[in-house]
Design a protein around this nucleic acid. Structure first.
Length: 227
DNA sequence: GCGACAG
DNA sequence: ATCTTGTCGC
């Protein structure tokens, strides 16, 4: 799908989300966990210099080894507004994805997918715009409610929106550690999204994809800032 | 109306 | 997101 330009204001941003939301595909199971490629994306900011750096790291899903990586640096073009995160992050992330040599496979995003006020968070946005299957794995639940899942790795509980809809899951990736908050982005169902998350997060709370992407975009920002 | 609010 | 030292532990 065609890349949308940066909206001039919040009202236009919401209108774009409402339009793009109609293109989300929810009836595909998604790529089988443990096979093919998985790509983590993340961004880091330098508010001083108004810079944003994005990274995309492609891993072999079976062995979790890095098979490709790319970064992109740009200017911040949209402020942080809860619910409109994608407009701040997507442009630079898309540039990083374009710079990859390999096919990204499944996109693993640092944030929400369906777990969003208008059911169109960052992971859904990136999925629709790229056409790639995408999931969101967030560190915080905030606007949603959930019962504490069991304390063992693999335990989970539904993440519920105000209207009672299950928009994702709180998934325990490590024994006794705060869960992560998984939601569907595009072309993946919730069971499959959670299965991917558990395969990607074995030694740490967060998926290896987002850990790698986080480290790389911070490095890219340092190097951009050093000039 | 006001505050809360992924990153 | 970012501001920020040392420190405890594998």
């Amino acid at each position: 799908m065609r890349v949308t330009r940066t909206p001039v204001d919040e009202a236009e941003a919401r209108a774009i989300q409402d339009e793009l939301r109609g293109h989300v595909v929810l009836d595909e199971a998604g790529p089988p966990p443990g096979t093919g490629l998985v790509t983590g994306v993340d961004v880091a900011y330098d508010d001083e210099r108004d810079l944003v750096a994005a990274a995309a790291v492609v891993l072999d899903a079976a062995g979790l080894t890095v098979v490709d990586r790319a970064t992109a640096v740009g200017r911040v073009t949209f402020p942080y507004v809860p619910g409109l995160l994608a407009f701040r992050e997507a442009p630079t992330v898309l540039a990083a994805l374009d710079a990859l040599d390999s096919d990204p496979g499944l996109l693993v995003c640092d944030g929400y997918g369906r777990a969003h006020p208008r059911r169109f968070g960052l992971a859904a946005h990136l999925g629709v715009v790229t056409g790639l299957p995408a999931i969101g794995v967030a560190k915080n639940p905030f606007m949603f409610s959930y019962e504490q899942p069991g304390s063992r790795r693999g335990d989970f509980s539904p993440l519920v929106a105000e209207d009672g809809e299950e928009v994702g899951r709180a998934v325990r990736t490590r024994d006794g550690v705060k869960p992560v908050f998984v939601s569907v982005g595009h072309r993946v169902d919730l069971d499959t999204a959670c299965a991917h998350t558990l395969r990607l997060a074995r030694e740490h709370r967060l998926p290896e994809t987002t850990r790698r992407a986080d480290a790389l975009c911070r490095r890219a920002l340092r190097e951009a800032t050093a000039n």
